[in-house]
Design a binder for these strands. Structure first.
Lengths: 124, 124
DNA sequence: TATGGTACGAACAAATTTGTAAGTAATGGG
DNA sequence: CCCATTACTTACAAATTTGTTCGTACCATA
């Protein structure tokens, strides 16, 4: 993301809400457009930047970079840079991120159920 | 929210992601700034508009209305209007929304744990 | 010397979400 | 007639997120 204004009402509200609700706090961490997709790709192990880019349809390098940076800052993934040329960097889930996996799967099931209920097509 | 441009890249990306990932789909439904707060307040039963407004610190009537409308459209809550004057309207969780509750509680626990790990203060 | 691959960064623009400040309808009570 | 109450709506503005288009460093290889 870009920088945020420290004292906007928007920012203040976010702080207050996140500060007082673990649930909203948790959902905010994974709320970016591409974050869950990235995390899911990493469920089975490390991937490098270009592998992520290639597996995620439609993401731009900028977006991938931004979301990776945030996830790293939030402690959800670990970035490893290898001193090689051309550069090689890979990403993997942290322990705390791995603890989310079973919860995701429940949420995902719920999503599938809700989708059927609402008759929203799944385009796998 | 306001109307969205039907064919922006933004919109297209969202469609594709949501269409192909039940998890992202699920998280999107509860992703609005105030949505989880609203849903949480309704965990123990119906509340009317003004009760929600009074229980949620900092929300404006406009935001409350917007988020309620979306949640209703998404099938997460049921709106009941009583033909009285002054108007009376109340909101309650739908069955499918109630099924989220146990998942929330896990997510919330995770959030609390993560918060400690990151040393982010909880301001209850 | 020119080229190519990798993982970004910067400047800018468009889209979307959130917030501000009003105003509305209907009706009972004074 | 005037006012209060409730659950909104509308027009507008500010903030934030997302997307587009470039450009960079590094060194091995041709």
């Amino acid at each position: 993301m870009g920088k945020r204004k420290e004292n906007s009402t928007n920012m203040q509200n976010e702080k207050v809400i996140i500060g007082g609700c673990d649930l909203t706090y948790a959902v905010c961490m994974i709320g970016g457009r591409w974050k869950l997709l990235i995390l899911c790709k990493l469920e089975n192990g490390k991937l490098r930047f270009s592998e992520l880019r290639n597996r995620i349809n439609g993401i731009t390098e900028r977006m991938l970079t931004l979301q990776l940076r945030e996830l790293e800052k939030e402690g959800l993934l670990k970035r490893t840079v290898y001193p090689e040329v051309p550069p090689r960097v890979d990403y993997e889930l942290t322990e705390i991120a791995k603890e989310l996996v079973p919860i995701w799967s429940q949420l995902s099931d719920w999503g599938g159920k809700h989708r059927k209920l609402m008759n929203t097509p799944y385009v796998g």
